[in-house]
Design a protein around this nucleic acid. Structure first.
Length: 431
DNA sequence: TCTGGGGTCCTAGGACCC
DNA sequence: TCTGGGGTCCTAGGACCC
């Protein structure tokens, strides 16, 4: 049996901790470049603001709705997340941190599960200030579904039985009540069923989670695929999706960004890609890995249909796996030179590090090599300086010089302070 | 008249998740 | 004027190799 603990409208809730005046108002948090809504308060949802809706549309369509928009402040959200996760862990013997605002908790041996979940929920609310929903079920997919029920029952009274609000334990329901809950849930809400598959299922005459749960797994496998078959079995109470106590090693590391304005010059793209490769390299060293290949891509904006479109990517193999920023940057820049075409308004570029392996694998060879393939002491010192004094304190020369306005950086005009992670930005309390 | 088969790599794109 | 970033897995066609 599993629980899923999930912060409500997480980014918005984080912002509200430090600005209680935002309670009760329609609040949204915007993506990079202040492009579109990536988190919405209940009030914002009620206005019809959807996930991913562009900010310029919201602004023009509802100028008098009093929507408060904030630039994303991921430093703050990550810190609040850590605090929430450590309290959620108290619900059971094992925890899988699934995303910034969600964790699964294994419940083997836990007694009075529902009452205990209510206490954990209350504690997270009081100690951290984040409201959350807790769903409990026989499998991870059912725990996710239960979590949806817990939140929806609270937000839309009448949608589900009131006692399922905030904490919903599907494992404690009688079979007929359990079926009724699944029958009241649209199949599109099921974890693993996205837009396309939902369409196909509806085309086959299905509409609710209960309809999906009653499909024959073998038929689903032959008509769709093994992934959807697992989802069906999970709805039927058979665990197919592993509980990942320790996060598996990453297979890819990406650093990509949309530009604040269109970019046409090669030198600007090289500057951008230099920074992306450096950032990706930091992440790589943090997980003690080496990369075998570097993928570089660039493309125009698919939203600007009237502009000529261009999209290219290229993989540059490294002579041997490395975490040395200098070599990663060199490969990324070589890739950008190869795919660049003048005359296009580029909207986004990025770097992916591929074929990751543990740094220890190449160790014997590295020992013979001065500095080591991770660049040795120099790179470590640079990482430490950047962690202590702020990103970009020390960087590779082609990443652009301080003082010169970099054309490609993103816009973030509506950002709140790093209340909890920067001494300079601590909140002030009036006596 | 008649033109193999198997393997790998790269690029591109689609599906899902948060 | 203005549409995110970071992941995983899968598929398909073309280039290239033997």
């Amino acid at each position: 049996m599993y629980a899923l603990v999930d912060g409500n409208n997480f980014y918005v809730s984080c912002e509200r901790i430090f600005r209680p005046a935002l309670n009760g108002r329609p609040v949204i948090v915007l993506s990079n470049n202040d492009g579109c809504a990536i988190a919405r308060s209940n009030e914002a949802k009620a206005l019809g603001i959807t996930m991913g809706m562009p900010w310029f549309q919201i602004r023009t369509q509802m100028p008098h709705a009093g929507v408060v928009a904030l630039s994303a402040n991921f430093g703050l959200y990550g810190d609040i997340s850590n605090r929430m996760m450590s309290l959620a862990a108290g619900l059971g013997p094992e925890q899988e941190i699934y995303s910034i605002d969600e964790s699964f908790v294994g419940l083997a041996g836990v007694r009075d599960v529902t009452a205990r979940a209510r206490r954990v929920r209350e504690r997270i609310h009081q100690w951290i200030g984040i409201p959350c929903g807790i769903g409990i079920g026989q499998t991870k997919t059912l725990a996710k579904l239960a979590n949806h029920v817990a939140k929806t029952a609270e937000r839309k009274p009448g949608s589900y039985p009131a006692e399922l609000a905030q904490v919903a334990n599907l494992a404690a329901l009688h079979a007929s009540d359990f079926d009724a809950v699944l029958a009241a849930t649209d199949l599109g809400e099921v974890w693993g069923i996205g837009r396309r598959i939902a369409e196909q299922l509806r085309g086959a005459g299905l509409s609710t989670a209960l309809d999906v749960a009653r499909l024959r797994p073998a038929m689903v496998r032959s008509r769709w695929n093994v992934t959807l078959e697992k989802t069906v079995r999970e709805l039927q109470g058979l665990s197919c999706i592993a509980f990942e106590d320790v996060p598996p090693a990453k297979k890819e590391i990406a650093s990509t960004r949309s530009f604040g304005r269109p970019v046409t010059r090669l030198e600007d793209l090289i500057e951008a890609v230099t920074e992306f490769a450096s950032r990706a390299g930091e992440k790589l060293r943090r997980q003690n890995g080496h990369a075998g290949k570097v993928l570089t891509f660039v493309h125009t904006s698919p939203h600007r249909r009237e502009d000529p479109q261009y999209s290219r990517s290229v993989v540059v193999p490294l002579r041997r796996p490395t975490a040395d920023t200098g070599l990663l940057v060199q490969a990324a820049v070589a890739g950008m030179r190869q795919i660049y075409r003048p005359g296009y308004k580029m909207a986004k570029a990025g770097v992916h590090l591929l074929e990751l392996q543990d740094a220890a694998i190449g160790q014997a060879e590295l020992a013979l090599d001065e500095g080591g393939a991770d660049g040795g002491h120099l790179v470590t010192a640079v990482d430490q300086l950047n962690a202590r004094y702020g990103r970009g304190t020390v960087q590779i020369a082609s990443a652009g010089t301080a003082g010169v306005r970099r054309q490609w950086v993103m816009r973030q005009d509506l950002k709140t302070p790093h209340y909890t992670t920067s001494w300079k930005e601590l909140p002030l309390v009036r006596a």
